[in-house]
């Protein structure tokens, strides 16, 4: 199944949503200062960025709807589902990494190969050996303490 979308229009909407979110989140995440430097405080830049993003978002929407300057792109939902599934693997990796770099990263390497439909057993062996080598190099040679 394929989905068609207009690049500028959707980018504009995404930028506008991001701008509104940033505008709303700024006072919550950046405390007000007792005194500002000639009107410029810690909140000024985030607010300015939210305005800039919003203006660009509106500009992109206008480009698409009024000036008709846009490009229709295609999303293959089957492929995207695979991408989303891989992102879940990355999430699982993130959770597993806390416990063991060696096991979690070996599994990530194996999963990455499986996702690319690799049928060569040697590649799986190489990726696991690579993790072991990196683990040894980091812990023994570079004195980096891995989980």
């Amino acid at each position: 199944m394929k989905l068609h979308y207009r690049s500028n229009l959707s980018a504009g909407c995404a930028a506008l949503i991001a701008a509104v979110l940033l505008f709303l989140i700024t006072p919550v995440q950046v405390a007000a200062e007792a005194s500002s430097v000639h009107g410029i405080s810690s909140r000024t830049l985030p607010y300015a960025l939210s305005v800039l993003t919003g203006v660009c978002g509106v500009g992109l929407i206008l480009q698409s709807l009024v000036l008709k300057k846009d490009e229709v792109k295609e999303l293959d939902l089957r492929k995207e589902a695979k991408g989303l599934l891989y992102m879940l693997v990355l999430l699982a990796y993130g959770l597993g990494l806390k416990h063991s770099f060696l096991i979690a990263t070996s599994l990530l390497g194996v999963a990455t190969l499986a996702f690319t439909k690799c049928k060569k057993p040697w590649y799986y062996v190489i990726s696991i050996v690579a993790v072991a080598v990196i683990y040894l190099m980091f812990t023994q040679l570079l004195h980096v303490r891995l989980p």
Partner: peptide
């Protein structure tokens, strides 16, 4: 090979 390179890069990037 691209498949192996993808997996190895992912591993190196994580480390």
């Amino acid at each position: 090979p691209q498949q192996l390179l993808t997996a190895l890069l992912m591993i190196i990037c994580c480390a």
